[in-house]
Amino acid sequence: MTLITVQGLGVTYGANAVLRNVGLTVEPGEIVTIVGPNGSGKTSLLKAIIGATRPTAGRVTLKPGLRIGYVPQKLHIDPTLPITVERFLRLTDRVSRADCASALEAAGVPDLLKRQMSMLSGGQFQRVLLARALIKAPDVLLLDEATQGLDQSGSAAFYRQIETVRQETGCAILMISHELHVVMSASDRVICLNGHVCCEGTPAVVASAPEYRALFGTGTGGALALYRHEHDHNHDHDHDHDHSHSHEAAE
């Protein structure tokens, strides 16, 4: 049964129409990625799905009893608020310590249970957010630019973790990203958004679609080429030259 159905969705802030007539579905177990330029309404779409933004048109239908694991774009914990990783994982749900430990394990950061959230590195923090989203065995994970602030190898590793999570738990994943070259390899379906759905399909189909190229440029052959380019360098090494240049150019 379809987990999330969005039909004819419109979101307007004041006189500014952010989304118009957006439709999408998320089926069990699939990874759907939403790409789009800044201001294309990606975050508004996700907010409408979790109920943080009221749609001005259309509707969002969730499967009854759908368990959502949400990983926010960034989460600022005020330094005046002391909180351990364990307490953070138990924020809204009563879960056992064993569940906390196994969620951290699944997110690739075991042994952080007793640490203060404020002492974590950016990568560890994102994985703790992922662990919190995973803790109640969600049917679908929603990720809003979850790798902001991570470097390229950090975000690539994060998305590999997402794929592992899908393999192990079978949960569906709906994510937003601007890091097309990293994300596309992991996606079953890509939705290109710019106020409305420009094009949609497998990564290869979207990358060669004219609408997508109009948004993200064709100079370097689109994101798929970028992805391949990135793939050539997909070993962990330290170097100081910048091979994200073509990605920058494409944006």
């Binding site: 907010k47 979790i50 109920g51 949400y70 926010p72 989460l75 924020l91 809204t92 929603l142």
Partner: peptide, 17 residues
């Protein structure tokens, strides 16, 4: 818990109903 969640992050709160 609800106050604490809402204090940490509004979207996180919405996603937790």
């Amino acid at each position: 818990s609800a106050l604490l969640t809402a204090t940490l992050n509004e979207e996180l709160a919405y996603a937790s109903r």
